[in-house]
């Protein structure tokens, strides 16, 4: 979804146009293709295994999709401003460790404290990227190593089971409406809120604007460095949310619990149609992308594909999705 409306404008397909333009609103296939892929995937899996369409397995898909969705949403902000955050999954792992360590003593306050801490961690990464003026992938790679080590030290490199205080987070998975867990409901609500904020607030499009042309944004008085910092802060916050859901689902915290979600989360953002060149994308797209990624994983298992092939598929999917969504008119030299 783009932040500004009127997708109905009948604009001609600009692919053949020689102008270096990327109309966000003029490429309906970009928004519909991911949805089409999702539908096709679900159909294919149900043909292979009709039981897939039962409520049970769909709930499994939805629950598995939540951490990926949340990490993907965080990644979306960073991708919108033209960067990438390689540290987000490691931050989710850190969250599980912090939550599992603090819950017994602090109860619900542990969640607030963790989210604040994770946001600050994200802001630090963002500030280093924005004011250090260095590529985001290096700084976030450094952050990945650093915070990964912190997780290991804090946890003593073991899994921490949550029993005392689990009530503060168990409602995320145990409670819900009509079999749909509250984590799912809250996440979808979050998607809607992000969409509404981007669309209906004065500065809601600021991530898009900075991603489309950071220099022009700077010259128009937009505090682009702050915007980038905020994007990483949000990525940290959402990594925290994803970590809390993971802790609730696993009833434990571990220093590498969420690490494997890095690629699925990036895949969710780019498969949904967020271009890593920046400026294009939105929360609904990430939702679709997260579902595609999860159906691919669950459906693959259902259809009898060796789960060991998962990483190969994710790797290929990410490259393919980036290749399809990247906006080459804006990159004269690709490094």
């Amino acid at each position: 979804m783009s932040t500004v409306a009127t997708t109905s404008t009948p604009t001609r397909e600009p692919i053949s146009s020689s102008k270096p333009a990327t109309p966000r609103t003029a490429r309906p296939w970009r928004q519909l293709l991911p949805l089409g892929i999702l539908v096709a995937l679900v159909l294919a899996v149900s043909l292979a295994e009709p039981a897939f369409l039962r409520t049970n397995s769909l709930t499994v898909v939805a629950n598995q999709a939540i951490p990926i969705l949340l990490l993907g949403l965080g990644q979306m902000f960073v991708v919108l401003v033209g960067g990438i955050d390689l540290s987000s999954a490691a931050l989710a792992s850190l969250t599980t460790v912090l939550v599992a360590t603090w819950l017994p003593g602090m109860g619900g306050a542990a969640l607030v404290l963790t989210l604040v801490a994770l946001t600050v961690v994200g802001l630090i990464t963002g500030a280093l990227v924005a004011w250090g003026q260095v590529p985001s992938f290096v700084i976030s790679l450094g952050a990945l190593g650093f915070w990964g080590a912190v997780s290991l030290v804090v946890s003593g490199s073991t899994t921490i089971y949550v029993s005392q205080g689990y009530g503060s987070i168990s409602w995320l998975t145990n409670m819900g409406i009509a079999g749909v867990s509250s984590a799912i409901i809250l996440s979808v609500a979050l998607v809607a809120v992000i969409w509404a904020v981007m669309r209906y607030t004065p500065r809601g499009n600021v991530f898009h604007v900075v991603g489309l042309n950071e220099r022009a944004a700077l010259m128009a008085g937009v505090r682009a460095r702050w915007v980038k910092t905020a994007a990483f802060g949000l990525s940290g916050l959402f990594a925290g949310l994803a970590g809390i859901v993971l802790t609730a689902q696993q009833q434990s915290g571990a220093p590498q619990l969420g690490d494997a979600l890095l690629l699925p989360a990036i895949a969710a953002a780019v498969v949904g149609g967020c271009a890593i060149t920046g400026g294009i994308g939105g929360p609904w797209r990430v939702l679709v992308g997260a579902l595609v990624v999860t159906v691919l994983r669950v459906g693959g298992a259902v259809a009898g594909i060796d789960p060991n092939y998962q990483q190969i598929i994710y790797g290929a999917v990410v490259i393919l999705a980036v290749a399809l969504t990247i906006d080459r008119t804006r990159l004269s030299i690709i490094k």
Binding site: L86, I319, V322
Partner: peptide
């Protein structure tokens, strides 16, 4: 295919692990 190298190699990193 003109994909930034960090993105390609991020993908092949996991393909190799897979």
């Amino acid at each position: 295919i003109r994909v930034p190298s960090f993105m390609v190699t991020l993908g092949t990193w996991f393909i190799g692990l897979g």
